[in-house]
């Protein structure tokens, strides 16, 4: 019951949270009561073009985080892969497999940072992507009720985090592009020609060309590269 009360206290004080660092501290302090050392929340399924947006918040040890990111473990970590595949709460230990060399390597390396086991949850984001929260520990001893607490706390944490992230995002300036113009310009940013864009989006080459030209006019850009730069700077397409 004590854990339940802590969880409800965490949820009830969220209304007073106005910045992301103190929100993270508050969640970290809650999961600490459950014996969890640290956590990571992110959106590993984001398309490559939106890769920068895949990791939202973490309290992982800095050295481990740097290593994990530099090795691109986000794509191969068995916990993340299993989370996406099974779409239900999982224990880290359930994802261990003797046949998975990369996975075993990651597990062994995590042990050096005192993470031998953990708990991971899938949650859906605003636009339908699966968001994952994973928490590590060196001694896992949670019961079903504790896991339910962490699940509910994670939902509230995630919703609050998304709201604060949205509030803190720089407000777009300048003329607004339509969704189709942004889509076409995103493909320009990826190096595609009008013809390639027309094939990708199943529209005519002429139409693709017009969308891009409209974007140029709206953004007051003389070249496509300039339009891409302005659109990225004004947060209308992703870098």
């Amino acid at each position: 019951m004590q854990m339940t009360n802590s969880t409800f206290e965490f949820i009830e004080q969220l209304d007073c949270q106005t910045d992301i660092p103190s929100l993270i501290n508050s969640f970290q302090s809650l999961i600490g009561k459950f014996g969890m050392a640290c956590f990571m929340i992110g959106d590993p399924t984001r398309p490559k073009m939106q890769r920068d947006d895949r990791l939202w918040a973490t309290t992982w040890p800095q050295d481990w985080l740097n290593h994990w990111l530099s090795q691109n473990y986000i794509s191969v970590d068995p916990v993340i892969n299993q989370l996406l595949a099974r779409n239900e709460p999982i224990l880290w230990r359930e994802t261990r497999s003797a046949n998975d060399d990369t996975g075993s390597k990651i597990f062994n390396e995590a042990t050096e940072f005192h993470m031998t086991d953990g708990f991971a949850l899938p949650i859906y984001s605003r636009d339908g992507f699966v968001v994952g929260i994973t928490m590590g520990t060196d001694h896992y001893e949670l019961g079903k009720q504790d896991e339910a607490c962490l699940h509910m706390a994670s939902i509230y944490f995630h919703a609050k985090l998304e709201r604060l992230r949205a509030e803190s995002a720089p407000k777009p300036r300048g003329p607004r592009l339509t969704p189709r113009e942004r889509e076409c310009l995103s493909w320009v940013a990826a190096g595609k020609t009008d013809w390639e864009i027309s094939q990708i989006l199943s529209i005519s080459e002429q139409t693709a060309h017009e969308y891009v030209q409209n974007a140029l006019i709206k953004l007051n850009a003389t070249t496509r590269a300039q339009a891409v730069a302005i659109a990225i700077f004004t947060k209308q397409i992703l870098a």
């Binding site: 949650i123 859906y124 605003r126 939902i155 509230y156 995630h158 919703a159 609050k160 998304e162 709201r163």
Partner: peptide, 8 residues
């Protein structure tokens, strides 16, 4: 999951 959407 509906709870989450309405929180958002």
């Amino acid at each position: 999951d509906l709870l989450f959407r309405y929180l958002l």
